[in-house]
Design a protein around this nucleic acid. Structure first.
Length: 511
RNA sequence: GGUCGAUUCGUCUAGGGGUUAGGACGUAUCCCUUUCACGGAUAAAACACGGGUUCGAUUCCCGUAUCGACUACCA
């Protein structure tokens, strides 16, 4: 009895895929996997004016990066081809005509000037919401008001026209939403939406219903911004006679700005310096590049985890979920109703968790790439050691090198504040002794040995090691903070260490 | 303006007619430590308001307020 679940993500290729869209895709993916169903990607490119080159590839790339690639899409079609609405163009007219035949739609010949004039007239007459509806359509140029002959003549002459849905004057439209329950809307508040545009393309409303039906979509999971037009869609299913197979609806809460109110937008990204797009996006028109999470150093598994929790939660206290675990735990019932502010701090926290969970070897690869970008080189083993001591303090892979540069590059200057406070005759004595003992030492230079030798150097001069540690760190790294110093010594190696200490001894003055 | 939706710590949220209203991020303090970070511990921090219903409401109902979405031949 239960048919296979089929869900779709249906973005329009008008630019970079917004992070909110990515979450919608994720929820669709999770639901499909959870139920053993299929996740399809349909490109909604019915607006030829807004087509942006590269946007389709961007959408595909973003989903691939996150590992939530669709089961059916323009690139790996299933049995519902084509997956681009522009390529499905020839299919829609017959459905619109069917609606006209049934008396649920009509031709309209009004020019945009006439539409504007109508709205102005209504506004002037203080009509609350000026729209093309059951009242106003009686005063416009359409197949409901014009004589049949004239309509035929106009159509035959190739005059531009649109097809509009004929919304009933008085009807209660009931809509069931899996997240919000029953929503009731009166048809008098709906307007006669355009179904077929004058360029022969369907609008979203028509295409969406026809395609979802033909593609046997069982659940429509989309953003809350679609809730107001959902009653129209319900009406369309009814008029087509597809009520029995009408999909279930689930309208997701919106992603909001981190401060103030409103939908999260690119402006917020610029304002707060965090991305809202999954990957870098170069706008082909303006030439400007918008920052992406991927290039910003966010790990795909961290993004997935973070995004999943924006509007959904498993109901227990577990927070770190792999994709597989998300699939297992996911349910539409546990999706929240209210809008969610975008908290980049939480995203960073997730990133840190996943970064630390990675092996030293995996992290070393990032480190090596960054190091080679600067024309330097390092062997894998050493890179892994650096990754090991640096990963606890990194948020992004790039931090490994950014914060750990001193491992390969000797300091050329020293933090003045620390120097002023900590650099003294005792340190100089200890370090001078240390260099000597280092030179005498043979064999492997482990952190333990580095420490033992340093302790000897201090004791030999009757000085407590703890008192001079900060200054020792300063001498070798140039700064007052960093990972375990003895581990650093071991990684740097005896020779380099001695060199750095000599430089410090020559450079820093005891006041 | 109209229609629809939403409302628990600063943020993400759990919960649900009787609870010390729980967790996480962030913040603060303490511990660990040669520093910073990690880690551990602790703390401050919330049921928008007003009416009902009820022995009892943060929880159910109704209003109000606030916020949001939508209001195109865009999706």
């Amino acid at each position: 009895m239960n048919k296979e679940v089929r869900v779709r993500f249906a973005p329009s290729p008008t630019g970079a895929l917004h992070i909110g869209g990515v979450r919608t895709a994720l929820y669709n993916y999770l639901y499909a996997r959870k139920t053993g169903g299929k996740f399809l990607l349909r490109i909604e490119d019915t607006d030829q004016n807004r087509f942006v080159p590269g946007a389709e590839e961007y959408i595909k790339g973003a989903l691939d990066w996150l590992g939530i690639s669709p089961d059916e899409s323009p690139w790996n079609p299933g049995n519902s081809s084509p997956y681009r609405q522009s390529e499905r163009k020839p299919m829609y007219m017959q459905y619109a005509l069917d609606l006209i035949e049934k008396g649920h739609a009509y031709y309209a010949f009004d020019t945009s000037e006439e539409l504007d004039a109508m709205r102005e007239r209504l506004t002037a007459a203080r009509v609350v919401s000026p729209q093309y509806n059951s009242i106003t359509r009686t005063q416009m140029k359409n197949s409901l008001t014009l004589p049949e002959d004239e309509v035929k003549a106009r159509l035959a002459s190739g005059e531009a026209y649109v097809i509009r849905i004929k919304i009933p004057r008085k009807e209660e439209v009931r809509l069931h939403d899996l997240i919000r329950g029953w929503v009731m809307v009166h048809s008098s508040t709906l307007d006669d939406k355009v179904l077929m545009k004058s360029d022969g393309m369907p609008t979203y409303h028509l295409a969406n219903i026809v395609d979802d039906h033909l593609m046997k979509i069982t659940h429509v999971i989309r953003g809350e911004e679609w809730l107001p037009s959902a009653p129209l869609h319900v009406l369309l299913y009814k008029y087509f006679g597809w009520e029995d197979t009408m999909p279930e609806f689930a309208h997701l809460p919106l992603l909001l700005k981190p401060d103030g109110n409103g939908k999260l937008s690119k402006r917020d990204a610029d304002k707060h310096g965090f991305p809202v797009f999954p990957m870098d996006w170069k706008d082909p028109n303006s030439g400007e590049t918008a920052m992406g999470f991927r290039e910003g150093g966010y790990l795909p598994e961290a993004m997935l985890n973070f995004l999943a929790f924006l509007g959904w939660n498993p109901g227990d206290h577990k927070e770190i979920f792999s994709l597989e675990e998300l699939v297992e735990a996911f349910s539409i019932e546990r999706i929240g109703k209210s809008g969610t502010k975008f908290d980049i701090n939480k995203a960073k926290w997730f990133n840190e968790q996943y970064l630390r969970a990675k092996s030293d070897e995996e992290l070393a690869a990032y480190l090596i790439a960054d190091i080679e970008k600067e024309g330097l080189s390092i062997d894998k083993e050493k890179a892994a050691k650096i990754a090991h001591v640096m990963k606890e303090r990194a948020t992004f892979p790039a931090d490994l090198w950014k914060e750990g540069k001193f491992m390969l590059i000797a300091p050329s200057k020293f933090d003045d504040e620390i120097a002023g406070k900590r650099w003294n005759a005792e340190v100089v004595t200890v370090l001078a002794t240390y260099i000597e003992k280092l030179a005498a030492h043979t064999g492997e230079f482990t952190p333990e040995i580095a420490k033992a030798v340093l302790e000897e150097s201090a004791e030999a001069n009757g000085i407590k090691l703890g008192k001079v540690m900060q200054a020792v760190r300063l001498a070798v790294t140039g700064v007052g903070a960093g990972p375990d110093l003895m581990a650093v010594f071991s990684i740097i190696g005896k020779e380099e260490l001695s060199k750095r200490i000599k430089f410090a001894l020559d450079t820093l003055q005891v006041l």
